[in-house]
Computed example of a mutant assay.
Amino acid sequence: MTNQSNEGQKSSDFDRVEVFEFRSIGLISTPFNQKFGIPRQSQSLSKAKGLIKFSADINPQNACRGLDAFSHLWISFIFHKNKTGAWKDTVRPPRLGGNEKVGVFASRSTFRPNPLGLSVVKNLGLNANNELVVEGVDMLDKTPIIDIKPYIEYADSIPNAHSGFAQCAPEISMELEYSTAAKAKIHSLAQVYSDFEALLINILEQDPRPAYKSDKLDDKVYSVLIYNCDVRWQVRDNINFIIDIEVA
């Protein structure tokens, strides 16, 4: 009878859904004000920088002591714009053309049972304002940060690992061309955002359009927001043609 009781207790423990509450340790400032156009991976595909601004009760000098010895960091964060909480147990990854389904746990979809993100970024250290500067971000502006851990090469890098449908980095081949008006604005924006053109190239060369659009005739005019600038572009003969840039 005792064994049966214990087995029943164990079963109920595993069946129970537990709820945990986390606090953010700060927010990250990035150039991305909308989800569309954000690089789909962090360090390997993104050149964007971010500033982690810590909460008032955290002393960055103490909490980050020794962090400068690590070149890269793991950042845990919340997909805070996925407010509905809706998720499905299967998704259609862009790398599979948006047609084939895999389980949500075999993907990096932002719509998950818990809206947790995890990215590797380059560590550029604390600045004069005690903000942590990182590079290679794939997060929205003002994303809540949950935790920071150092990337440890011998433990975190596995040379013979298999990565399913994402074994190799995606091909990056789309070039950019500018209208006369857009080119003039690029030169003007460089005075305010020195990395603006590099970010624009970085985003569009990866073709942020829905995956099913990549092999079809597509005359739609798209828009992507970088900092406070709305970039309008169209794909013409597999080239991203920048039509205009509007500053909000």
Rank of each mutant, 00 (worst) to 15 (best):
residue 123 N to S: 12
residue 124 L to G: 00
residue 124 L to H: 08
residue 124 L to S: 05
residue 125 G to W: 09
residue 126 L to C: 10
residue 128 A to G: 00
residue 128 A to I: 03
residue 130 N to D: 15
residue 131 E to I: 00
residue 131 E to A: 04
residue 134 V to P: 01
residue 134 V to H: 01
residue 135 E to Q: 15
residue 135 E to D: 10
residue 135 E to N: 04
residue 135 E to L: 02
residue 136 G to E: 12
residue 136 G to I: 08
residue 137 V to H: 05
residue 138 D to N: 13
residue 138 D to E: 14
residue 138 D to F: 09
residue 139 M to C: 12
residue 139 M to D: 05
residue 140 L to V: 08
residue 141 D to G: 00
residue 141 D to N: 15
residue 141 D to W: 07
residue 141 D to E: 14
residue 142 K to D: 03
residue 143 T to W: 11
residue 144 P to W: 05
residue 144 P to G: 01
residue 144 P to A: 01
residue 145 I to W: 00
residue 145 I to F: 02
residue 145 I to D: 00
residue 146 I to Q: 11
residue 146 I to T: 10
residue 147 D to N: 11
residue 147 D to Y: 02
residue 147 D to L: 02
residue 149 K to E: 03
residue 149 K to D: 08
residue 149 K to H: 05
residue 149 K to I: 06
residue 150 P to M: 02
residue 150 P to I: 00
residue 152 I to W: 02
residue 152 I to R: 06
residue 152 I to F: 11
residue 153 E to L: 15
residue 153 E to P: 03
residue 154 Y to K: 07
residue 154 Y to L: 14
residue 154 Y to M: 13
residue 155 A to N: 04
residue 155 A to F: 06
residue 157 S to Q: 09
residue 157 S to F: 14
residue 158 I to W: 05
residue 159 P to R: 07
residue 160 N to W: 03
residue 160 N to T: 04
residue 161 A to M: 04
residue 162 H to G: 05
residue 162 H to T: 09
residue 162 H to Y: 04
residue 163 S to G: 05
residue 163 S to P: 00
residue 163 S to H: 14
residue 163 S to R: 12
residue 164 G to L: 04
residue 164 G to S: 06
residue 166 A to P: 01
residue 167 Q to G: 02
residue 167 Q to K: 08
residue 167 Q to A: 12
residue 167 Q to L: 04
residue 167 Q to W: 01
residue 168 C to T: 13
residue 168 C to W: 01
residue 169 A to V: 06
residue 170 P to L: 03
residue 171 E to M: 06
residue 173 S to P: 00
residue 173 S to C: 11
residue 174 M to A: 01
residue 174 M to F: 11
residue 174 M to E: 02
residue 177 E to K: 10
residue 178 Y to M: 07
residue 179 S to P: 06
residue 180 T to R: 05
residue 181 A to P: 00
residue 181 A to F: 03
residue 181 A to R: 13
residue 182 A to M: 07
residue 182 A to L: 04
residue 182 A to N: 08
residue 183 K to F: 05
residue 183 K to Y: 12
residue 183 K to S: 11
residue 184 A to S: 12
residue 185 K to F: 01
residue 185 K to G: 00
residue 185 K to E: 13
residue 186 I to V: 15
residue 186 I to M: 14
residue 187 H to E: 15
residue 187 H to I: 12
residue 188 S to T: 11
residue 188 S to I: 04
residue 188 S to M: 10
residue 191 Q to R: 14
residue 191 Q to E: 12
residue 192 V to D: 05
residue 192 V to H: 06
residue 194 S to T: 11
residue 194 S to E: 14
residue 195 D to P: 11
residue 197 E to K: 14
residue 198 A to T: 15
residue 198 A to N: 15
residue 198 A to L: 14
residue 198 A to C: 10
residue 200 L to D: 09
residue 200 L to N: 09
residue 200 L to T: 06
